[in-house]
Simulated scan of single mutants.
Amino acid sequence: MINETIKKAIQTNSEELTDIRRKLHSEPELSWEETETTAFVCKYLDSLSISYYKTQPTGVIATIEGGKPGKTVALRADMDALSVEELNKELPYTSKFEGKMHACGHDAHTAMLLIAAKALNEVKDDIPGNVRLIFQPAEEVAQGAKEMVKQGAMKGVDHVFGIHIWSQMPTHKVSCQPGPSFASADLFKVTFKGRGGHGAIPHACIDAAIVASSFVMNVQSVVSRTIDPQSPAVLTVGKMVVGTRFNVIAENAVIEGTVRCFDQSTRDHVETQLKHYAEQVASIYGATAQVEYIRGTQAVNNDEESAKLVQKVATAAFGEDVLYPEKPTMGGEDFSEYMNEAPGSFALVGSGNPEKDTEWAHHHGKFNIDEEALATGAELYAQFAWAYLNQ
């Protein structure tokens, strides 16, 4: 199952792997702005003579053509950074750009897939089939995967595999459980309209601040009292804008938030109930409500056979104790778009190490990874592709 040439190639190129990750970390680019990252990926693929084409406006789709006939397996890495100010100022590879940071590990994903491609390219004559390499932009805005599919990323693909570095797991550990992995991630916006007026004459007004506050306090009962407790869901109000001046009763209030869950029926139910609560709360006070509900990423559900193959590959490559029973997360991931086109799985590779201060939450300004995890991720990419095609 494990290809020793691939293993040696990853080990041999581990220093280069770290260098690539550090370069990408120091030069973060936001969603749909990954121009220099795209150019770097293309230049690296050119050095390996791997064929590719650039997607628009950013991103790369490449293919390693094996020397024998067979299926096609896709490997995906995302490339975009976040609008987060990096707080790791002491690092020699800290972000060069104020307000931009690789605070989620996408720099590591891109570096790992490039080195995995280099290792697979060394054994391409023995590969029965093809390996599709997807370097995806705009994961953080949940748009990139859908666009990559439109531009041919999954054309002819039989199976798809992805990895996410995970600071909540110990370094080197691998988790890939069958079933739910990442939740669906939806956005909602509720606009309440009352009747403004002087703060000293409340009886002549309909206070949108009161309406919005009542909604925020009551809408949590959608989850706590209308959903089966064994079907987890999260409803979070993250933003509330109301009023214009200290002595003016607000006429308008705008609330924004997110909904996370794992199954479609729960997702549909929350959307329906959220609209119902907004309308009924507004009605109590004589106000009106307008609800905008945007379906974001779908839940990532790992195919059982694929997840079990990841586990077999991981234990064969790194030992029996490498597997980690990480629970599903309410975080969102647009990797689900690829799994609409072909079966596959999405694995987590641990990078948390308290001695190196790499256990900070993803999207935090202090986020960083234990770089010893890079080789684990790169080899898992390559060995999974080899094992799948050689089944």
Rank of each mutant, 00 (worst) to 15 (best):
K7T: 14
T12I: 11
E29L: 03
T38W: 06
V41E: 08
V41L: 04
S47N: 10
I50H: 03
Y52G: 07
K54A: 13
T55I: 12
G70D: 06
G70P: 09
K71Q: 13
D78N: 11
S83I: 07
E86M: 01
L87M: 15
L91T: 08
P92K: 04
K100C: 10
M101V: 04
A103F: 00
L114K: 05
A117E: 07
A117H: 03
N121Y: 08
D125R: 11
N130Y: 09
N130A: 12
G144L: 03
E147T: 12
V149S: 05
V149N: 01
Q151M: 08
M154A: 12
F161V: 11
I165H: 02
W166G: 00
T171W: 00
F182W: 06
A183L: 03
A185F: 03
D186Q: 02
D186H: 04
K189V: 11
V190C: 05
F192E: 00
F192P: 05
G196M: 08
G197P: 06
G199V: 02
P202V: 11
H203M: 13
H203E: 14
C205K: 05
V211I: 09
M217C: 12
N218M: 12
S221P: 02
P229H: 11
Q230N: 15
S231C: 14
A233V: 14
V241A: 13
V241I: 12
T244A: 12
R245N: 15
A250N: 07
A253Y: 02
T258A: 04
S265T: 15
S265I: 14
K275L: 09
S283P: 07
A287L: 03
T288F: 06
A289K: 01
E292C: 03
Y293G: 04
T297Y: 08
D303H: 11
S306F: 04
A317I: 06
L323C: 05
Y324Q: 03
G331T: 01
Y338P: 01
S345Q: 10
E355I: 08
D357L: 12
T358E: 00
H362I: 00
H364K: 05
A375L: 10
A378L: 11
A378V: 10
A378Y: 04
A382F: 05
F384N: 11
A387R: 06
L389A: 04
